[in-house]
Amino acid sequence: MRYSDLGIGALLLFFSLLAPGFLNNYQLSFLLQVLMMVTLAQSWNLISGMTGYISFGHGVFFGVGAYTGALLLMGGAFWWVAILSAALLAAALALPLGLLTLRLRGPYFAIAMLGLNEVGRILANLWVDLTGGGDGIALSPLLSPVLATNYFSMLALAVLATLGMGWILRSRFGLELRAIREDEEAAEMLGIDTIRNKLIAFTASALLPGAAGAIYAFYTSFIDPSSVFLPALNVQMIVVVLLGGRGTLWGPVLGAVLLMSVQELTWAEFPALHLALLGLLMILLVLYLPDGLLGAWKRIGSRYG
């Protein structure tokens, strides 16, 4: 990572660490959700921003993580064991999915991921014995970690996600992923095992959403199929990355802060309107700001700098 990146990171981290000291519970909750979005967006950035394979169903890993975390916690597991297991289970789900779809080129992966969030929601509704179906799961407040703990867990995830992204961007692995995005056939012909790389990226990109889902379950202390397999969440992580800048380190962070703040102040209370606007935003970003705000900033910088 470059020094400027470390500087920005340290400043953000410093503020986030002190935040519980001067923010009220509502503000802290909001910040927790921003950090959650940073985590989700970085994960999406890894598979879709880096390799160009668009995952339309990444929310499914969050939902699976939420259920895993909630059930394990209610079963008596330590909260951190529950989080860890949620991450691993989400990745374990991603692996066969990736094996099935990432051998194929082009749009197959996107199509296969398209309905996945919805499939997750339907399964959670039908598998009543495990999930309680539509009644959901209420977590006992005696077992759930307190808000500050959840906040710091989410902060740890967001830091981990961003550090991981920073490392990948500087690593050979990241270079190989970018080569795949540029021209997959040529990359393979240069000796890059494209399938293995895509599989690793995809599986890794499911880990942190799984963990984030578990923490989210502790934080809300009640989950049901439609609150964790939430279409809005699924769409938001894509829009956040597009807004900030695909395949960049700080794009997802910037995008998360901006989008979450704006929608909190305006339309977040109206789900259909919210999603309609997210859809519109997605179209506009792809057409008019394909490199996101960071890309535009760079372009302006190089023109006048």
Binding site: R172, R178, A179, E182, M189
Partner: peptide, 14 residues
Amino acid sequence: RVLPGLTVLENLLV
């Protein structure tokens, strides 16, 4: 089939 979005050096390193 040069990788268009990678620099010359990156094209070689990868």
